[in-house]
């Protein structure tokens, strides 16, 4: 039956969404009394977007700071994003969703299915079947890359003196949790113990709020349990940074224009209220 796994996953997702939303809201609601952008910095919105984009997508500061950290960190994040895409918007999942479900709930899946798949297939010149196979392999490869990057990060934490000295239990915990999740994921892909179709159906159903029984496979169960742990852990740990911390950071997101425009620092009511 294993419906409880779906339910647990819903619970974890709720904690994740509400928890993360709460924290982001808290950041947003906390006033920024003064202009503190790092200079030189852009004075206009477009420039700020570039700055934030650079941090978000290219980890620019990290590149400046330490390439031997930038490399595994960037690779890991890209791999993680790819894996997420693979799981949700992924190419095979929607097709199963379409097959199992009807009505509105499958609408978004159908778009992915009817437009996305042929498009991707057309681009790569593969048939649907070949494409499914390709996805399997590429997903596995990305997983392997993520594992390698995580191991690199872990080793760095263990071996580099300065980083080791600042690492806390939760830093290792996060890395180990992620490692285990991806290892169990890849184990299912490659060790073949699992009916992959069934797993996809589970994800599709879960996403469409029509939970189906989980495959009765211990590795799969473990994979999902670990994911639940991660989801619950994120809002309460440094992993809240997945909310895009840089976007909220006044040193990066403020326009460097205190001399073009009066910033009133709305929190301090004793600041004269007139705006220039």
């Amino acid at each position: 039956m294993q419906l409880w796994l779906s339910l647990l996953l819903y619970l974890a997702a709720a904690v994740f969404l509400i928890g993360l939303g709460w924290r982001l809201l808290n950041w947003l609601r906390t006033p920024v009394p003064l202009k503190i952008p790092l200079t030189p910095g852009p004075a206009d919105r477009r420039g700020v977007l570039w700055r934030l984009g650079g941090e978000l997508f290219a980890f620019r500061a990290l590149w400046r700071a330490d390439r031997s950290l930038w490399t595994p960190a960037w690779i890991f994040h890209v791999a993680l994003v790819l894996l997420l895409i693979g799981h949700f918007g992924g190419l095979e999942t929607p097709r199963f969703a379409c097959a199992t479900l009807g009505g509105m709930q499958a609408a978004f899946c159908r778009v992915a299915c009817d437009v996305g798949l042929p498009f991707a297939g057309g681009l790569t010149g593969m048939s649907m079947a070949q494409f499914g196979h390709f996805e399997d392999i590429s997903g596995g490869l990305v997983g392997a890359v993520a594992i390698a990057a995580l191991l690199w990060l872990l080793l760095r934490r263990l071996l580099a003196e300065r980083v080791r000295s600042i690492s806390t239990f939760s830093d290792y915990f996060a890395l180990l949790l992620l490692l285990l999740i991806i290892v169990t994921g890849n184990d299912m892909r490659f060790m073949g113990g699992l009916n992959i179709e069934q797993a996809r159906q589970f994800v599709a159903g879960w996403l469409a709020l029509h939970p189906t029984p989980a495959p009765a496979d211990p590795v799969f169960t473990m994979h999902i349990l670990l994911v639940c742990a991660l989801l619950i852990y994120i809002p309460f740990s440094k992993l809240v940074h997945i909310g895009g911390a840089a976007l909220f950071s006044p040193t990066l997101n403020q326009r460097n224009n205190p001399r073009q425009r009066r910033y009133t620092g709305p929190w301090d009511k004793t600041n004269a209220s007139a705006t220039a």
Binding site: T30, L62, D66, R162, I166, T168, K238, V240, F248
Partner: peptide, 13 residues
């Protein structure tokens, strides 16, 4: 608040 919350102890600094 943000800086207390988000440091990932990556060690870049």
């Amino acid at each position: 608040k943000l800086y207390l919350d988000t440091c990932v102890r990556c060690g870049a600094c």
